[in-house]
Amino acid sequence: MPSIDTRMSEGRQGSDGEPRGGLLVAVWATLKRDLTLLMRRRSEVLNPLVFFALVITLFPIGISPDPELLATIAPGLLWVAALLAALLSLDSLFRSDYEDGSLEQLLLTPQPLAMLGLAKVAVHWLLTGLPLALMAPLLGIMLALPSGSYLTLAFSLALGTASLSLIGAIGAALTVGLSRGGVLLSLLVLPLYIPVLIFGAGAVQAAIMGDGAAAHLAILGALLALSLMLAPWAIAASLRISING
């Protein structure tokens, strides 16, 4: 497999030596690099999933194993636990790049930092949000989640965690330069997560009641569109502050 450096240079060499096809090549290279790096550190990918399962295990022990009670609170529990698991993995989003200096190189590239940051967030979602969404129905069975809502659960989580990754990346970028940013990160990000939680858990509940899950999912999609539009700029500005500080 050719190294990333050669891939980048393949794209950059135009006939006259000028950079060519810059943005797409850079975004693609960032995507590949981050995916490769994360796939080599599998435990980092698995940790949020294990955390998700563990937290869900705690609730029947702490509240009651009664299936009827669990079924009523299951949508909220699953969503809150998935949200916390996604939050847990945020701190490492820019951390290793900050420590080994690759973040500075990203800042120096001629391509807009917002797009490269977006690529990193996309990788974070692919390896955190999406697995969480796929795993949630399994934990839903254990919480006696009423049938008929499993597909909505997975879909709402897949849609919602994408917004969570985008909003959370702003907090991660703001705190990456701080030695103990982890607790601060949750203080910054959790209040901003509330709308996603409301409509995500609402979608599952609506699916159980059999009315209007589509409306909730549509609003989740709208939130995602809005954060896709605005978050990359905030992430780029925050990264610049953290690097220069």
Partner: peptide, 16 residues
């Protein structure tokens, strides 16, 4: 840095 970070967060917050 603290000033600029707080400014960004305040702007993100006010949109939210």
């Amino acid at each position: 840095s603290g000033s600029r970070a707080a400014s960004v967060l305040a702007m993100v917050g006010v949109i939210n």
